[in-house]
């Protein structure tokens, strides 16, 4: 009997004061959990793998490139799409494959090209990142043909780096941000501070209502 009198259980509060506190805690917790995790699950539920323009262009020319029947324009497009990926943070192993593909793409246009001529031939301006990438990544090795490794791996690598999980929440702009980014990086933090603020105000109010004095 005595043990029942001294029961503490968040979900089965006994006194009126405990019931009020329990209700506040559970409400605050639910708001917190739904705001944080509910939003991420929503983001996951509605996302669609979306291709970058470079991937669309790559897929358009890849069949002919792989078959060895690509035109000059197709080779130029192929090389530029490879550069688009090399401009990102790419794993070392993937970079090695892409650089070989780039070498083939560029030198198959004209075997005797210099790096500056390569930029001009691909139609990239001297100040662009693509030109800098060509200067750094393009090796002196003239690759005669795309080897079987490249044939097999390049499409997967391109897809990996050029496909992104997008939805209306990522495509909508708010204060300049993609909405989902603003929500997670800024709004959730504001919400956390507000939850804490309201919780303290409510608890102080309840303690006043029940004439509770918290000892030092």
């Amino acid at each position: 009997m005595e043990t029942k009198e001294y029961r503490v259980n968040l979900f089965k509060p006994k006194t009126a004061h405990a019931k009020t506190i329990s209700k506040i805690i559970i409400t605050m917790f639910m708001i917190w959990a739904i705001a944080v995790f509910g939003f991420q699950f929503l983001l996951k539920a509605i996302e669609k793998p979306t291709k970058e323009k470079s991937l669309v262009a790559f897929e358009h020319v890849w069949e002919n490139v792989a078959a060895g029947t690509a035109t000059t324009l197709e080779k130029q497009t192929f090389s530029k799409t490879i550069l688009a990926v090399l401009g990102k943070a790419v794993k070392k192993a993937d970079r090695t494959i892409l650089v070989k593909a780039l070498d083939w793409g560029v030198y198959s246009l004209s075997p005797g090209l210099t790096k500056t001529q390569a930029s001009e031939l691909l139609g990239v301006s001297a100040e662009s990142l693509e030109a800098k990438l060509l200067e750094i990544e393009l090796s002196e090795t003239r690759v005669a043909a795309l080897d079987s490794d490249s044939q097999e791996l390049v499409p997967g690598i391109m897809q990996l780096y050029l496909t992104h999980n997008q939805s209306v929440l990522t495509d909508t702009k708010f204060l300049g941000f993609p909405f989902h980014y603003w929500y997670t990086a800024e709004f959730l933090l504001i919400l956390f501070v507000l939850i804490c603020l309201f919780y303290c105000l409510l608890i102080d109010k309840i303690h006043k209502k029940y004439n509770l004095v918290e000892d030092a």
Partner: peptide, 12 residues
């Protein structure tokens, strides 16, 4: 300058 890099902001 930077090349288009949606992977920086897009989820997972």
């Amino acid at each position: 300058a930077i090349m288009p890099s949606p992977e920086y902001a897009m989820p997972w």
